[in-house]
Amino acid sequence: MIESAHALTLTDRRDRRFGWLMASPSLALLFLVILFPVFWAFYTSLHDYTLISPNFDTFTGSANFIKAAEDGQFRHSLWLTTFFVVAVVLLEFLLGFLVALALNKVERFKAIYYAILLCPLLMNPVIVGLIWRMFLHPNLGIVNYLLSVVGIAPVNWLGSTKIAIWTVIMVDIWHQVSFMIVLLLAGLSALPREPYEAARVDGASPLQCFWRITVPLMRPVIIVTLLIRLIFAVKTYDLIYIMTRGGPGISTDFISYFIYRTAFVSLNIGEASAMSIILLGIILALTVYLYRYMRSLT
């Protein structure tokens, strides 16, 4: 058995070579635009490289990493981003799954629902931020006006350290929840009918059907959806740049905006690279864990 697995025939080998040949242009391109910049960033993170003196003259080893790890602001940003990511991914998932389940039962006008759902998703995050900033203007915005009509005092949406992060979370949910819905809905409509029919014959309740059939069958789709959304959420930058600039105080100072400032305001590319590598490590670890978990299920 072992021998035959190793002993490739001539045709096999030729096939393989041809395969590599066909794949090499895309592999080379991937290396050039993805792997190379990552290695370059890693190399930069080991040096004292600033935009004022852009050179690799001073090797600093792990100094940039230690400096980042010791920086209270950086750790605060990491923690805040984690909180934001967990909050939006969970809330968007719960809301998205609920809507997807409801829509899955709908037979007529499906296309119209899809079209409406896709609208926010088609919008540029910068536009979303600008529109919501206008809506949420505490004195001149429509949201507080509508609240005042029903007798609720004006809410300080973006000016309070306690509320601002929840405002950003709310806007992100508005913008991104349709992504969850669309993906989960695609998963739901691809589920086989037979298990449900069998369960109904056996007298299972709708709730039992959901927990015993829908959730287990949907698990791979759910994990992929969560994974993609999670990675996107970690990158959130545009909303913060437009809506709060990390404020008030440091209450919405997310990691991507923090790294951007280190690179392009402090002009310290070396330290910013070190921070990015740390972030990449965290995201990679999470991705590998979720991917493995998904593989273990199928």
Partner: peptide
């Protein structure tokens, strides 16, 4: 100041003033 001026950029602050508030 009005509620929320802790997060105003200059255009939003200008509008409050220009609306006579």
């Amino acid at each position: 100041g009005p509620v929320g001026s802790a997060s105003f950029s200059f255009d939003e602050a200008f509008n409050v003033m220009a609306q006579g508030k």
